[in-house]
């Protein structure tokens, strides 16, 4: 790759905005997702954007894309090893379920209702629940 030589030298101050600013890498990706009861659900493995298509020209004055969902599941593997899972295999945590973003991403719903927690539920119902004592608080 050629070393870039056309980097702009003078930078303007960014326009002021009407809300909190989040940088995806710094504030969203790979953060722990916690449900409304404080139970960890998963991590933010990727982010789905709505309102832009890859490699299609963007018309002047088009509305900016928004985050439609946080993604988890097989998408983690492809982020590490490359490739891309089919859209049908993406596990989505819709953005409208997100209630806050700080050092964790908080949801306003219970994890029980989410497709992101199906593995956890499967392990719980098929294995852990069947071992004596699994349902009780430790003594």
């Amino acid at each position: 790759m050629n070393r870039p030589r056309n980097t702009p030298t003078s930078l303007k101050s960014p326009p002021s905005v009407g809300g909190p600013v989040l940088d995806a890498q710094l504030h969203l990706l790979d953060r722990q997702v916690i449900d409304v009861d404080g139970l960890p659900v998963t991590t933010v493995d990727d982010i789905e954007l709505e309102g832009v298509e890859a490699d299609l020209p963007i018309s002047l004055g088009a509305r900016a894309p928004v985050i439609s969902a946080l993604l988890t599941g097989p998408v983690l593997g492809t982020r590490i090893f490359g490739g891309r899972p089919p859209s049908s295999r993406l596990i989505r945590l819709p953005w409208h379920d997100v209630s806050a973003v700080d050092v964790t991403v908080r949801l306003g719903v219970r994890s029980e209702s989410l497709s992101a927690s199906w593995v956890e539920r499967w392990v719980r119902d098929k294995i852990i629940r069947r071992i004596p004592g699994g349902k009780h608080d430790p003594d």
Binding site: V17, G18, G19, V21, A24, V66, I67, W95, D97
Partner: peptide, 13 residues
């Protein structure tokens, strides 16, 4: 990628 939280609230945020 930089995002601004200034769109009409879906529900919570």
């Amino acid at each position: 990628a930089r995002f601004v939280l200034d769109q009409p609230p879906g529900q919570l945020l």
